[in-house]
């Protein structure tokens, strides 16, 4: 039995009397890639943010590595890495300086060569490492943030629409990286629109609609999850 790293238990979130999440429950085990799919406004990002403590649940509970988000968020934040949908780092700093700054915020001092090897691993072109981030494309910023997540060596990664805006080759590189990280024991919780990409890398997929889990798909053996089945269910819900 794999350790339960991310657990939602009857999780509900209400914004101004509107239920964005309605009693959602799921568990993500160690080394697992779990993708939450859904259309716009389904509540995916809200679910993810419930684990980061940036959204306060109105009911149920969320926990990470056995720690309650409600009471131990500061401890949780030291054990997780987060990749936002739109990575906005500091434009006046270079890629390396951004990573150094964010690592320092986390209380981590990392040698330059370690940062450079992380940037190499995420395939950010070398001539951009010491260039101001204001000249980076969205994909380059995404890669910088992934390098930051890698350097934090966090056991759990929360990814919000990680491939949105990336070109096809960058998506392939990203998927490969996620698969490798999972095989090394990292737990990945991602929310996405991208049915195909999620099916390629996720061990399990939860389908979210109007704040409720309406379907759960699981990989069988080494085969990717059946894209068509997920897509059919997804399309049915999202017209």
């Amino acid at each position: 039995m794999r350790e339960e790293m991310v657990v939602a238990s009857s999780l509900s979130v209400t914004f101004e009397q509107h239920k964005v999440l309605d009693g959602v429950s799921f568990k993500v085990g160690e080394g697992e890639v779990f993708a939450l799919l859904g259309g716009n406004g389904a509540g995916k990002s809200t679910a993810l943010k419930s684990f980061l403590g940036t959204v306060t649940p109105s009911g149920g509970s969320a926990s990470v590595m056995g720690l309650s988000v409600a009471s131990q968020i500061d401890v949780i934040r030291q054990k997780v890495a987060y990749l936002p949908e739109s990575v906005m780092l500091y434009g006046h700093l270079t890629g390396v300086e951004n990573i150094e700054y964010f690592l320092s915020l986390a209380g981590i001092t990392s040698a330059k060569d370690k940062i450079e090897s992380a940037l190499k691993r995420v395939a950010l072109q070398q001539d951009a490492w010491y260039r101001s981030l204001s000249n980076y494309s969205k994909g380059m910023r995404q890669k910088t943030a992934i390098a930051l997540a890698l350097l934090r060596e966090a056991p759990v990664l929360f990814l919000d629409e990680p491939t949105s805006g990336l070109d096809p080759s960058a998506i392939d590189e990203f998927n490969q990286l996620i698969t490798t990280l999972a095989s090394e024991g990292s737990t990945i919780f991602m929310v996405s629109h991208d049915v195909y990409g999620a099916c390629q890398i996720a061990h399990r997929i939860g389908l979210l609609d109007k704040g409720k889990i309406v379907g759960m798909f699981e990989r069988e053996g080494d085969n990717p999850i059946d894209t068509e089945a997920v897509h059919a269910s997804f399309s049915k819900r999202n017209g």
Partner: peptide
Amino acid sequence: EAGRFDLLIVTAKEE
């Protein structure tokens, strides 16, 4: 407004 808030507070040791 710059979209860094969540990343900052999730990364910082203590907000």
